[in-house]
Simulated scan of single mutants.
Amino acid sequence: MRALLVVNPRATTTGERARDVLVRALSSAVDLTVRYTERRGHATTLARSAAESGVDLVVTLGGDGTVNEAVNGLMTAPAALSGISGPAAYALPALAVVPGGSTNVFARALGLPSGWAEGTSVILDGLRDGRHRVISLGRADDRYFTFTAGLGLDAAVVRRVEQARLRGRTSTPGLYVRAMVGQFLTGVDRSDPPMSLERPGEPRASGLGTVIVQNTAPWTYVGDRPVDPNPDASFDLGLDVVALRRLNVAGTTRTVTQLAWRSGDLRGKQVLRLHDQPEFTVVSSRPQAFQLDGDYLGERQKVHFVSVPSALRVIC
């Protein structure tokens, strides 16, 4: 079996020694090529080239951003676009994820261990036993995502965190909390929620201040605690949505408290929740911050979301 290991050398929780151990372990089971990412988007190029060359397995060592890039490389390889019969998952290399980031939501949502050593052991066992799982993906316009997408407040928080990390701050739960408080108090226009959600054959939902899309549960983690506005979201179903109609202080504080302590028990007039959606479009009257899998991707005024069933095989 031929495999490519895509390594993000800036991964938060792994050093050179850990990478060496990982390479030796994987090399004992597969014909391994190792490539290091050099810039944003490089993992997409590496994974696409691997798929085009007939590699059987792509392994990532990094965080959720590295996983997202690799998935987009696989899903835009010719095999995924050539009109094959049956799910794309069986025409593409399988994916294996070794957690190396600060949060690793995708790996944890798959039930993988949080440590890179334990994660590597799971991959080796899965390869030996021929074990894999076929999962759905989300697609936002032409970009795929594995666990979440967002427009509005949550994406603006991601933007703040990325800006702080560029200034040398470490990604921690506290950094996200401070970014959320700062964005809510100073960066949100609460008087005129700009977004609407449109579904085929359904009434438009208007006056939305932030929209969060889930392809699985949980949405994210704060340390070891899952944050789960839509606990029924699943890799085996369509997309789930939670949106807030207004971002007033009292209502948003109540919703954030529910998320922190009761997760799926979100209630209130300002909360819109949708389950197992095949497609929908979010439209905004003004540009909104946009994120996929925890990476900030700029601002958008319109995004079309689609669930892509049986898209990817994952070793887990």
Rank of each mutant, 00 (worst) to 15 (best):
V157L: 06
S27A: 14
S307E: 08
V188S: 02
R286A: 12
F184M: 05
V55E: 04
V6I: 15
A94V: 09
D154H: 08
V177H: 02
S285V: 01
L95E: 01
V256T: 12
G100T: 00
G73V: 01
L61E: 02
V58L: 06
V157S: 11
A289E: 12
R131V: 15
S82R: 14
H132V: 12
A164W: 11
P229G: 05
H275D: 11
K269W: 13
W219Q: 12
V188K: 03
D293A: 09
R225C: 12
R143W: 08
L112V: 04
T33V: 13
L124H: 05
T76Y: 04
I315P: 00
G223C: 04
D240Q: 04
A155D: 10
L32F: 00
D295R: 08
S102T: 15
R167T: 14
S263Q: 15
D64A: 03
P173S: 03
V271C: 00
V213Q: 11
G223P: 15
V59W: 02
A43S: 06
Y90E: 14
D31R: 10
S114C: 10
F106S: 03
D276E: 09
A88L: 05
R131G: 07
V30G: 02
L22K: 11
S82D: 15
G182N: 12
Q214W: 03
R254W: 11
V227Q: 03
P203Y: 14
S136E: 07
G223E: 08
T146E: 10
R273C: 11
R199V: 13
R19Q: 10
L244A: 09
R24A: 13
L247P: 08
E118S: 14
L61S: 03
A43Q: 01
L4T: 07
G174H: 06
D142M: 03
L244R: 01
T216R: 06
F106R: 05
P99M: 04
L312Q: 03
P309A: 01
L22F: 05
V271S: 00
V241P: 03
L259T: 08
R128Y: 10
G201Y: 08
L185I: 00
V271N: 01
W219M: 14
